[in-house]
């Protein structure tokens, strides 16, 4: 029980720091910024209280905003995907059963399942972020391609970090 809290707090701190110190400032070519911190919201346990999910998302978004000087921008986008998360899970995995505290991670959903789930939510986040940030639609095709490319990059980043988290767990299990 305690383990879940500690794990999520550590994960939160690590992901936020990784996001604002490394991913935000490193150049990947073009204007790509992979938003890997979303993994925190993606990996919260299935049975997280829905309202708690929203509050956690709001806090996560505000933390990123605090560092990026974009008060409210990420908060709005992350709250939106937290709102969509239960619906998306139900839509892709209508018959899924889970135990208490289990996470929608790679080992539970499989690589394809996890990618579907992650990409959908990350795309939603990116769409909202871009339109809140830029507010104009004159280069519609370019904006769309930007949204799509950035969402792909974020999904890739999320997958890599998720794999790191899972492989650690497996190693621990083997030791036991």
């Amino acid at each position: 029980m305690n383990n879940i809290y500690v794990k999520n707090i550590v994960r939160f701190v690590l992901l936020i720091l990784f996001q604002v110190l490394v991913l935000d400032t490193v150049q990947f070519g073009g204007y790509v910024i992979p938003y890997v911190y979303l993994l925190f919201i993606l990996l919260l346990p299935f049975d997280t209280n829905k309202s708690l999910l929203l509050l956690l998302a709001f806090f996560t978004g505000l933390s990123i905003d605090f560092f990026e000087n974009t008060m409210g921008l990420h908060a709005a986008a992350v709250v939106f995907i937290a709102f969509a998360r239960p619906g998306v899970i139900k839509f892709y995995f209508p018959t899924l059963e889970y135990t208490k505290g289990e996470e929608p991670g790679l080992s539970k959903l499989g690589v394809t399942g996890f990618l579907k789930y992650a990409f959908t939510l990350i795309l939603l986040h990116q769409i909202l972020l871009t339109f809140l940030e830029v507010f104009n639609f004159h280069d519609f095709i370019e904006t769309l391609s930007h949204i799509f490319i950035n969402a792909l990059a974020s999904t890739l980043g999320v997958l890599v970090v998720a794999m790191l988290f899972t492989s650690q767990k497996r190693r621990k299990r083997r030791k036991r």
Binding site: L54, F58, G72, L73, A75, A76, V79, L132
Partner: peptide, 21 residues
């Protein structure tokens, strides 16, 4: 409709903060 009201409340708060920039 706690979930939905909270969602709307948080979104309004965020957008109002965003107005500052």
């Amino acid at each position: 409709h706690q979930f939905f009201s909270l969602f709307i409340l948080l979104e309004i708060t965020s957008v109002m903060m965003l107005m500052n920039s």
